[in-house]
Design a protein around this nucleic acid. Structure first.
Ligand SMILES: [Mn+2]
Ligand SMILES: [Mn+2]
Ligand SMILES: [Zn+2]
Ligand SMILES: [Zn+2]
Lengths: 131, 131
DNA sequence: AATAAATATTGACAATGTTAAAAATAGGAT
DNA sequence: ATCCTATTTTTAACATTGTCAATATTTATT
């Protein structure tokens, strides 16, 4: 997809080789990679890229609304190219993260939440992904 | 509460002064403190306690099922003395974590989750706690 | 080409947590 | 009480994740 280059231009970010490589990896892998995984993989095609540049790019993409961050396993941030509202399922065995479409679940209130103004929520499920 | 000492004995853990101090803080403060907060506060009554001992004790209590861990704000683990099933609300402004009783919310499936065996789940809500 | 602005790299740093080795402590046997 | 042993605590080193400032490089503009 040449689309990756467009993504950067469209939000006013200069499309440098490093940024293109990061965008390419994260939007084509369609997973929930952490910064380190992104760095390792991007270096296959862009061997000189530095850790700081990866973080700079990822944080920029988050600021531009093209990525979301999540913390679902361990203490490391994962970058989520799915910016629509959705829930998550984390496999106990593999640590793999799966998107659960928003309309799969319905969260309703039995009792009213007095004094809590909810801006956003999600359901996080853990268990086993069946083979 | 002398109860703290009982808690340790009951699960076969030798009740040392350090462990008693950690248990006392975490079960009496009733919040969702991180290890650093626990260390700081426990040092008020037990000034020589080391970071490693705090982590050792907390990990031990988690292994014994007396504490749960959560990662709800930033990337730091918080220790939760509420080991019953419950949901969480995180205040955007203060970072404060609130327990939402399990029966306050109901999560239902509109569509069946094919291939996902759910062992556990929780709803994480974010927003503003009204003054 | 010369200049200025934006970006990338490097290396230092902070925060969080784990680990191994040494020192201190507590309990039990004699 | 003294000795012995197992447990626990402390210390210090280390790993990981992420940020930051300074420097070097690249890019755009003139
Ligand atoms: Mn990783
Ligand atoms: Mn803290
Ligand atoms: Zn996702
Ligand atoms: Zn809780």
């Amino acid at each position: 997809m040449k689309n990756n280059l467009e993504i950067l231009k469209r939000c006013g970010v200069r499309p440098t080789p490093q940024r293109i490589a990061v965008v390419k990896y994260i939007f084509e892998s369609k997973g929930h990679p952490d910064a380190d995984t992104i760095l390792e993989n991007v270096r296959k095609t862009c061997p000189t890229i530095s850790r700081a540049t990866v973080y700079n790019t990822l944080n920029l993409l988050v600021a531009k609304g093209l990525l979301q961050t999540q913390i679902l396993k361990g203490r490391t941030v994962i970058f989520d190219p799915n910016t629509q509202k959705h829930h998550h399922f984390v496999d106990d065995a593999t640590g793999k993260v799966f998107d659960i479409p928003w309309d799969t679940l319905k969260v309703s209130q039995n009792k009213t939440l007095q004094g809590f103004q909810v801006r956003d929520y999600q359901v996080i499920m853990r268990g086993r992904r069946e083979s």
